[in-house]
Design a protein around this nucleic acid. Structure first.
Lengths: 255, 255
DNA sequence: CTGCAGCCTTGATCTGCGTCAAAATGCTGC
DNA sequence: GCAGCATTTTGACGCAGATCAAGGCTGCAG
């Protein structure tokens, strides 16, 4: 289903004049947990960070690997997934820039992480980051807030998987992506960097059902396809209704 | 589907000689986040705790209620659930003694919490507990660990809801309960205090399908019913295989 | 340009689980 | 004990979505 790909090597941080203090210049800092650290202390983060790049399809880590690192995604899209012994796969989430990854303060990763497209990450050794957490309680509090939000999102996903119809699931998926894009400025254009197989494995459907549902949304003029990977939401209200979204979904949400 | 029930009043802590320092005597303390506080500081927890009891069917809080409290379950079983506008319900979890509840450091609860049977809880006002977290970083670290475990459990549940068959879902459910009971001594007897409707809404199935799957497990001599609510696991190995559990499921897990 | 290889879409058919219905079982109060 | 009610189990049938099977589209190599 998914190609394992070679395990890439860590690329050590390249220190040049352009990025002598890269964290300070980072475009996702305010959105992510690093935002909890005051600018004058960012050097301590820089000191332990390593940068890593993956090509589409490459694996960051496998389910069951010993978890020794935490990551922040700075560019691209990452797919998290779990597998059953016979190959059935569940994608448990898609990550986008500013998302946090590896928040298992556990022994091993509970899921695999793979690059959907070209991906850049900041990598922090777990033990050294934990030492920083002791120094910066605000960062730990932020981490708890992130975990809390992820837990709420996981519960939404359970509702989707347990009780929504195929059309509602696909509508919910587009709706969630739309809201994420809105947070970053884009109004109504949603890009789907992942394949239909990925979407199906995320929504508990087959690719055929995903495709048919997308076609129905297109026929009903809820969305419009620009390319197979990019679509425009034409009728956001109807999309929200299909997704079973709360009434106050228009209110901006923050991390 | 579920009866809302009257919102019970908070019962103020009764200070008697028998429980002058109840937290110290609490039977779930070691299992829960309170275990992170040294005995000599337990008084500070006692100072802000309120005890609460609910009868079967009563509601602790509703999805969307302003979240001003955190709870630790000391006795009984609590059901967490989310609803769609038309009444479809997803049970997102069942809680048992020592479980933590309300770990939304968010504005509002993302789910409703109802008593499955007679329930006792410790209630902590959110702002006062947060003040304690500042004093006891170990407690905050423990909270993060709890959140991390819940996140992993949520991902397991996504795999179940998205990719497992009805029989596998029911087997997984019994298997998970069995492991929880094992942590507390019981070997192979599992009690199901919740109704078939609750189980169905947890597993994304109807009560009829739950019942049929249980009957099949019984026919195949995987489990044996003592009463409709209590069953004995006869063939744990086959149960684990059906549940799609990892090979190392026999290893004890701790909080 | 042409040919090939991956995806994606669409159609036809099948099936696991939902729905509808009714009987069995258990629980409570008398 | 027995009546009355709620819950669970079992059976018959239907349907949403899976499976099986063609095409169609897009991008890349030559």
């Amino acid at each position: 289903m998914s190609s394992p790909g070679a395990r890439p090597l860590i690329q050590p941080l390249q220190r040049t004049t352009a990025d002598a203090n890269p964290c300070a210049a980072c475009k996702v800092r305010d959105l992510s947990i690093c935002g909890a650290i005051e600018p004058e202390h960012l050097g301590k983060l820089d000191a332990i960070v390593m940068h890593k790049k993956l090509q589409a399809g490459e694996t960051l880590f496998f389910e069951g690997d010993r978890s020794d690192s935490l990551y922040i995604l700075t560019d691209g899209c990452v797919r998290l997934s779990k597998m059953l012994a016979d190959g059935r796969r569940q994608v448990t989430g898609f990550l986008f820039p500013s998302d946090f990854l590896g928040l298992a303060l556990r022994e091993r990763y509970a899921y695999s992480a793979e690059a959907v497209d070209a991906v850049s990450l900041c990598r922090y050794p777990k033990n050294r980051l934990e030492a920083l957490l002791d120094q910066f309680p605000a960062m730990e509090r932020r981490l708890l807030a992130v975990a809390s939000n992820e837990l709420a999102a996981a519960q939404d996903q359970m509702l989707l998987l347990g009780r929504k119809t195929a059309l509602e699931r696909v509508a919910s998926f587009i709706f969630i992506l739309m809201r994420r894009m809105q947070l970053k400025g884009r109004q109504d254009v949603v890009s789907l960097p992942m394949t239909r197989t990925d979407i199906g494995d995320y929504l508990g459907l087959t690719i055929e059902t995903v495709s048919r549902s997308l076609s129905k949304l297109k026929r009903d003029r809820v969305v419009r396809f620009l390319t197979a990977q990019d679509l425009q939401v034409v009728d956001a209200k109807r999309l929200a209704a299909l997704a079973g979204a709360d009434d106050d979904w228009q209110l901006a949400t923050t991390i």
